[in-house]
């Protein structure tokens, strides 16, 4: 799994690193729990200053895409991205509401599927 940096790109190097790691993690190509190279190592490989890579990692951590476990290094977050966490919170709220309304799990899933398919049809 390769990361590339184009010095002629209009995007600054820290953003190129951040965007590529985020895209790979969200596409599942970097599975949760994958250990990322150290800041110093990645900076050396890419010919960047360690601060540049550290900034990318900080932003990825802020977005919930990666997590830093002290001296063990940085890992792709098991909680998914910030958007995934928000979706999970919404799903939990929905499940609570279904229980309050006394609606069965099967019906709840059916409503979600219908809503999502309706959404897809609307977009298509």
């Amino acid at each position: 799994m390769l990361l590339s940096i184009d010095p002629n790109s209009s995007a600054p190097p820290f953003e190129q690193v951040r965007a590529q790691i985020a895209a790979l993690a969200q596409a599942g190509e970097l599975p949760a729990g994958t250990r990322l190279p150290t800041v110093r190592r990645l900076a050396g490989d890419l010919g960047l200053a360690p601060n540049t890579v550290a900034r990318s990692y900080r932003e990825l951590e802020g977005d919930g895409i990666i997590e830093t476990r002290g001296r063990h290094g940085s890992f792709v977050s098991r909680n998914g991205s910030a958007n995934e966490r928000r979706a999970l919170a919404a799903a939990e709220a929905y499940a609570d509401r279904l229980r309050q309304l006394g609606i069965s799990t099967e019906d709840g899933i059916r409503f979600v599927r219908a809503a999502l398919e309706g959404d897809n049809r609307g977009r298509g």
Partner: peptide
Amino acid sequence: RQFPAPRGPDASRVARLDA
């Protein structure tokens, strides 16, 4: 020791994410 990049410091660079 770290060797210089074959195409010089201004060329595009790649790095692997899995160690």
